[in-house]
Each structure stands twice: as C-alpha cells, then as structure tokens.
Design a binder for these strands. Structure first.
Lengths: 209, 209
DNA sequence: ACTTTTGCACTGACCAGTCAGTTCAAAAAA
DNA sequence: TTTTTTGAACTGACTGGTCAGTGCAAAAGT
C-alpha cells in the first residue's frame, strides 16, 4: 500500500481532498439545502473533478452523513471540554452551563454554515440520514443533560426541572440566538451575546439591573 | 374572508382548492424539503390535477411563498392576541411573555409541519423567498420585542437586557423545545411542556423547588 | 355565460452516478 | 543510479432518468 510516509498525523492526500469536499459541501448545503445542491457544484467549489467525489464517498448522501458526524463530533467534544474544565476549576453547575453556552457560541461563530445546515435538517423525517442525525444529536444534548442532572443531584437545581426538556430549551436558546446574531447583527461581539444569554439563564431578566 | 356560504362574488371553490394545496405542500415540504418535493406529489396529495396547481399559483416557489406568509400571519396574530389578552386582564409583562410562550406552543402543536419547515428555511441565504421570510419573521419577533421593551420601560425588566437578542433567545427556546417535544416525546402534554419553559423563563431553575 | 378543474402528452433543462482513461510518486528491478 | 512497474487517486465526458412548467380540448361546477 502507500500511506505511512507522511509524517504528520493523518495527512494523506486523500484526507486533504475529503476535507476540501467537506468545506465546499457545508457552505453550499447551508445556503441552498441538500437537494438543491448539486454534486457538480460541490466538486467545482472544492477544485476537484466530479469523479473524485465518488472516489471518496459512496454517494452524495454518504458525503453529507459523514459531514454531519464529523461536525457534531467537534461540537460534542467542545461542550464536554467546557463542562470538565469548569468542574476542574471547582465551578458550580450554573458555571458549567454558562461555560457550555460560551462553547456553543464559539462553535457557531467558527462554523456558522454547519450550524445552519444542522438546524435545517434536524427535525426532518423520511430522510436517509435521519437515524445518523438522531444519534449525534443525542450525544451532544446528553452533555447538557448530564450537567443538569448533576446539578439536581447536588441540590443546586430544583428537583422539579424536566431535564431533557430544559436541555433542549437551553440548546434552542443558544442556537437561535446565535443564528440570529450571525444573520442579522454580525458586528456584535461574542462576549456581548454571551452576556445576554447568561443573564437569561440566571433569571436576571426580571427585576432591575 | 373564507368560509361563509354567502353567495358573494368571490369564488369559494378556488379558496378551498388553495387551502388543500397549502395543506398538502406543508407536510411534504416539511418532510422532504422544498427541492425534494415535486409538484406532482403536491397535486396528488391534494387530490387535484397538476394543471390546477398552475391555475392557482404562478409557480412552485410562489405557492411556497404564499404558504409561508399565510402561516406566519397566523402565528403573529396569535402572539399578539395573547399579549393583548394579558394586558386586558391586568397581568404583568412576565405574564404576557408566559402567555406568548403558551400561544407559541399551541401554534406548534397545531401546525408542527409548518414550524418545522419554517425553521429549516429561516436562516438560509440565496433563496428566492428569502426577503419574504425576513419580513414575516420580523413581524413575529417584533411582538415579543414589544413586550420586552414595555417591561423595561415599566421597570419590570432590567434595563440592561438586550431586547432583540433576548427576544430571539426566547423564541428559540420555545421553538426548539417544542420541536423536540413533538419529535421525541409526543405523548407529553402541552401543560407539562409549558410548565418547564415557564420555570426556565422565571429563573426558577437554580435553587430547589 | 363564465370560471375552474381535469387529464395528459410534451419539452427542455438539469443532475446523480458511471467508467474508461490519465497522472505521478514511490517501490521494484536492472 | 537509472529504468520500469504498480496502483491509488483523480479526471471529465457520457448516460439514463427526473422534473418544472406548458398547451389545450373537454368536462364540471356555479
């Protein structure tokens, strides 16, 4: 075979091509949707022949599915890291949630197209990649749920909170606020957006500031 | 201006056909996306000939655009009604927000497909109906923003809150929680979901219940 | 009378996926 | 060293199929 040779980790020619295809596909699909995006477009934007797409991926759907897995993997790792870091620093569970909100914002700031595409596809039914999507979604949400549950156990959060639903609501809060930020007020700083969401999380909306 | 068996000039038959087409299109597009849904499918599900689609709408895009306008119009009216009703009853602004959360949940409960489709298209760029979508979105969000602003003026909310961003976050909270509810825990009651979101809104997450 | 719907054949553009052929760097042979 | 071979990676013209939108005469509704 070949491989080996390349000293740095996983930097084969093939891997580089796949990466280019991911990047091309993510922006195009975020803009236009999966069906409206052609494989020719993806290949062209990646600077690659159409055949190369099919050499690297079994089909358009498979390319998309792997893109999805790859992206949500990054997000999940980032959320987990934020939670663990807070724990290491002896922070409370609210601090952990806050850190995860920030991690979410950083992620969306860095990969806005991916986020957009994810939201657009998440609740669709009857699609080939539906099951893949549910799995990766659950991995990400589970991190939030974990922190909430630990908070309940520690007595920091009310026992009456509905963990899965609250987790979903928190994720939605960050997701929609961030997408609106990127779409309609892109000039604002991440700190600014984070502060606003932090306030909402901690119930410091009611009452004067 | 529909229903009513009044013999007034405007033909009601046409209106009924349009309604059937809306209903067929909304579920199909929610499931599959705009591009993946064919006009033939829409016509078939509506129980109508393909020619009828084009007799009633200039194109597939126009049909979709009018569907979008129609749906968001219903939501906006419902939110506005909830806010006004609360005001009439002498409720606080938090009560108004709470009533709007419920109104949002009722809407999503009734029109889950529409909601799904709306979320999937909202942050897309480069699409024909993009501008239409931004206008109707703003109409809906403005209702929430209005209540927040009034709350700030009355001293009920902190002056430091970021009105547009907080409004977006609240909408996101309801949207995502509700879509998750419908997708993953459809057996739960609306009251249940409403209670969980209410708690989050009022900062009753931290501290024991 | 006139509006609306039907049914169906047709067109032209567009697109996912294929495949025979090319490239080129590294391994094997000379 | 120099030459030859190998094969993974890549290419792009081509195919078979799909779909938005058209045209129109006859039927159904009001």
């Amino acid at each position: 075979m070949e491989s080996s040779s390349a000293p740095s980790g996983g930097s084969t020619r093939r891997e580089a091509t796949r990466q280019k295809l991911y990047e091309a596909a993510v922006t195009l699909i975020a803009e236009q949707g999966f069906s409206a995006t052609t494989v020719d477009e993806i290949a062209e934007r990646a600077g690659v022949a159409k055949g190369t797409v099919y050499y690297n991926f079994a089909s358009k759907s498979v390319l998309f599915e792997e893109l999805l897995r790859h992206g949500v993997g990054l997000l999940t790792a980032s959320l987990r890291e934020a939670a663990e870091q807070t724990a290491r620093d002896g922070g409370s569970k609210v601090d952990a949630l806050d850190a995860m909100i920030r991690a979410g914002l950083v992620f969306i700031d860095r990969y806005p197209s991916f986020t957009q595409l994810y939201v657009a596809e998440l609740w669709r039914t009857n699609r080939a990649w539906q099951s893949t999507l549910m799995v990766v979604r659950q991995q990400a949400v589970a991190v939030v749920e974990g922190v909430l549950r630990e908070g309940v156990d520690k007595g920091e959060f009310s026992e009456e909170i509905d963990v899965p639903l609250t987790a979903a609501a928190l994720v939605g809060m960050v997701l929609v606020a961030a997408l609106d930020w990127k779409s309609f007020q892109p000039e604002r700083s991440l700190d600014d957006v984070h502060a606003a969401l932090s306030r909402l999380l901690q119930g410091r909306v009611s009452g004067r500031g």
